[in-house]
Design a protein around this nucleic acid. Structure first.
Lengths: 208, 208
DNA sequence: CGCCGATATGTCAAGATAGACATGTTTATA
DNA sequence: TATAAACATGTCTATCTTGACATATCGGCG
């Protein structure tokens, strides 16, 4: 039996509003991809299993075989139990930070370019988030919707996204500038280390 | 042929200093786990394959069958190529943020507790990072080591960790307080949504 | 001398995930 | 009326990752 994070998330999302697999896939692609990427080959089998387990049921079959799922009472109870009784896995996987540990292998010029790429890419992401925030606020003003639970939670997530990107850009900019400022020292240290390497290569005395 | 992130990272780490699989596993557990978790069942086979590909070679066999690996010239070239020519995968997977989208299913009291847990856990992580920073600085003062390339890169990573945790704690605290302040509205909205749910359950009109 | 904890290397099975392949329908537009 | 784009659901394989199992060595302490 699958008890994965994704399954619980699907349950919780459908609890907010009955939805089809395709709708969920779109939701993941458009707004959840930055928190938890998931695509249709994972979503459809998970939904089938949740239905089998009686946590979801099909409430409508629309055009193009579209199946709209809704949670059952057991389904709601199960997400609540998951949220209450299990601690979130707080591991993060950040390839950029991992790469940082190998960055000394590049010339200072290339290391600076690495940070430039980071800054540009995260700036774009930030712009997207800020756009979404602006759209949300406009909608709230126009439709005068009271901050319902779901929308409020989504706005907290969006706010985290914005804070994260701003902090990241600030850090990357500062790091970039520090490398650019100490470019000479960087390249000297690099040559030294790479040289040592070559030495230990031909001889058999590897220790630094 | 494996060309995974982990393989390139192993290459880069060994380029900094020849190391055994066990040493790498320890390094991942102690300092890299927060950027890229990896354990020995992944590390040993990856090393074997890298050796086979001529990117690593065994330079020493110590007690307890310990094999110390060093990079070959091809190995160095390969990490450099990886760093230069491939963009890092910037996807993040954050279970806490995902859970946020389901948080409205809990009572305000429980939602506040959720954030309290986050704050506590990240505060501990922050303390750990700050401790490491202090230790690093002490060592630099005592041994007077010039900021070599590798240590400098590691310190950038540590700085990111500290910034990240501070920002996260600030956001979580603010979110917690906002929920606590609007507890009544939260619980009302929740009851409404869960009630709607029950209605759509017995009848067959699911749309909100 | 015996035992424990740390060192050290491996394998295997199960589950999660990504990317490619496969198929059919509906709607809007040229 | 052709056709493209979006809708909609699925499968399959390969790879990544985790946790459990398995084994053996070395150093220190009682």
């Amino acid at each position: 039996m699958r008890t994965s994070v994704l399954s619980r998330a699907l349950l919780g999302l459908i609890a907010a509003e009955p939805m089809s697999g395709y709708g969920l896939a779109r939701l993941f692609e458009r707004t959840l991809a930055r928190a938890w990427p998931a695509r249709h080959p994972q979503i459809y089998p998970a939904l089938a299993e949740l239905e089998e387990q009686g946590l979801l049921r099909v409430i409508e079959t629309g055009p193009r075989r579209r199946k709209t799922y809704a949670v059952t009472a057991n389904g709601v109870a199960e997400v609540q139990r998951w949220l209450r009784d299990t601690a979130p896995d707080r591991t993060v996987r950040n390839e950029t930070i991992l790469r940082l540990f190998m960055l000394w292998l590049l010339e200072s010029r290339e290391a600076v370019a690495f940070f430039d790429g980071e800054i540009e890419s995260h700036r774009q992401r930030l712009v997207g988030f800020e756009q979404t925030l602006a759209d949300d606020e406009r909608q709230r003003r126009e439709h005068g919707t009271a901050q319902g639970g779901i929308a409020f939670c989504a706005s907290l997530a969006l706010e985290w996204g914005i804070r994260y990107e701003r902090e990241y850009i600030e850090w990357a900019t500062q790091s970039r500038d520090r490398i650019a400022a100490g470019a000479k020292a960087w390249d000297v240290a690099r040559e030294q280390r790479l040289g040592q390497h070559k030495a230990s290569h031909s001889s058999n005395a590897p220790t630094c």
